[in-house]
Measured scan of single mutants.
Amino acid sequence: SEIVKHAEEALERGEFVRIEHNGRVIEIRNEEALEELRRWVEK
């Protein structure tokens, strides 16, 4: 997914991403959060 790709690229640069999706906000700061995002987006 485009969202996950964006988050992965930001993590590689040492940045973090805040994503709003279906009214929820998730902050991607590490691999664990990235995995959570993947599960969340796939639903």
Rank of each mutant, 00 (worst) to 15 (best):
L37K: 01
N30Q: 02
V17I: 14
G23W: 01
F16Q: 13
E9N: 09
E12L: 15
E32M: 10
H6A: 14
V4K: 02
R38L: 06
R29L: 12
E15G: 10
R38D: 02
E20Q: 06
L11K: 03
N30Y: 05
S1M: 13
E2F: 10
E42M: 06
K5G: 04
R24L: 13
E2W: 14
A7N: 02
A7I: 09
V41L: 12
E20H: 08
A33I: 07
H21W: 15
K5W: 04
L34E: 03
E9G: 07
L37S: 00
E12D: 11
A10N: 03
G23T: 01
A7D: 02
G14E: 05
H6Q: 14
R13P: 02
A7G: 01
W40V: 06
R39K: 12
L11G: 02
V25C: 15
E32Y: 08
K5Q: 08
F16L: 13
I26T: 03
V4A: 03
E31V: 14
E2G: 10
H6G: 08
V41S: 02
V41C: 09
V4Q: 03
G14H: 05
R38T: 03
H21D: 03
E36N: 09
V25I: 13
V17Q: 06
R18Y: 11
E8L: 13
F16Y: 09
I28V: 12
I26G: 00
E36L: 10
E15Q: 07
E20I: 12
G14N: 06
N30S: 11
E15W: 05
R29E: 07
R13N: 11
G14V: 01
R13D: 06
A7Y: 04
E8M: 14
H6V: 12
R29C: 14
K43R: 11
R29N: 13
G23N: 05
E9K: 12
E31N: 12
E9A: 13
V25G: 03
E20A: 07
E27V: 12
F16M: 14
L37I: 03
L11N: 02
V4E: 01
R18D: 07
I3N: 04
L11F: 11
E9D: 10
V17S: 04
E36W: 13
V41R: 01
R18T: 15
H21C: 15
E8A: 14
E31W: 15
L34Q: 00
R13Q: 06
E42Q: 08
E32V: 09
A10K: 07
E20W: 10
E2D: 14
L37R: 00
G14L: 04
H6R: 15
E31C: 15
I19K: 00
H21E: 03
E32A: 13
V25T: 09
L37N: 00
E27H: 09
I26Y: 09
E15H: 07
E8Y: 09
I28L: 04
E35G: 07
R29Y: 11
W40I: 10
A7K: 01
N22G: 10
L34D: 01
E9W: 02
N22V: 05
E12W: 10
R38G: 02
E31Q: 14
E15T: 03
A7H: 01
W40R: 04
E27S: 05
H21P: 00
K5M: 07
E42Y: 05
I28M: 03
A7R: 01
E27Y: 10
K5H: 06
K43I: 14
I28W: 00
E20M: 10
R18A: 12
E2M: 13
E31K: 15
E31G: 10
V41D: 02
E15P: 00
E32F: 08
W40K: 03
W40P: 01
W40Q: 06
F16C: 15
I19Y: 08
R29F: 11
L37E: 01
E20F: 11
E32T: 10
W40T: 05
I3A: 07
E8N: 06
I19E: 01
E27L: 10
R29H: 11
H21I: 15
L37Q: 00
I19W: 07
R29P: 04
R39V: 06
G23L: 02
G23S: 03
I26A: 01
A7L: 05
I28Y: 00
E2L: 13
I19A: 04
G23R: 01
E12S: 15
L11A: 03
W40F: 08
L11S: 03
L11P: 03
I19C: 09
A7W: 05
N30A: 04
E35M: 08
V17C: 14
A10D: 02
A10Y: 07
L34P: 00
N22M: 14
E36A: 12
V25P: 01
E32H: 10
I3Q: 06
I28G: 00
E35F: 01
I3R: 05
I19M: 05
H6L: 15
E2T: 11
E32I: 09
S1A: 13
E8G: 08
E35Y: 02
I26K: 01
I19V: 13
K43P: 07
A7E: 01
N30R: 03
E36V: 09
I3W: 09
I19S: 01
I28E: 00
I28A: 01
S1F: 13
A33G: 13
E27R: 02
E31P: 11
R39D: 08
F16P: 12
R24G: 06
E31L: 15
A10C: 14
S1H: 13
I19T: 02
F16W: 09
I3L: 14
R18I: 15
H21N: 05
K5I: 06
I26W: 10
V4I: 14
K5S: 07
L11W: 11
I28C: 06
R24C: 15
K5A: 08
G14P: 05
G14C: 13
L37T: 00
R18P: 05
E20S: 08
N22F: 13
E27F: 10
V41P: 01
R39P: 00
E9P: 01
N22L: 13
G14M: 02
E20T: 10
W40L: 12
V17F: 08
V41I: 12
N30L: 04
E42C: 11
F16H: 14
N22R: 11
A10T: 04
E35R: 08
E8V: 10
H21G: 01
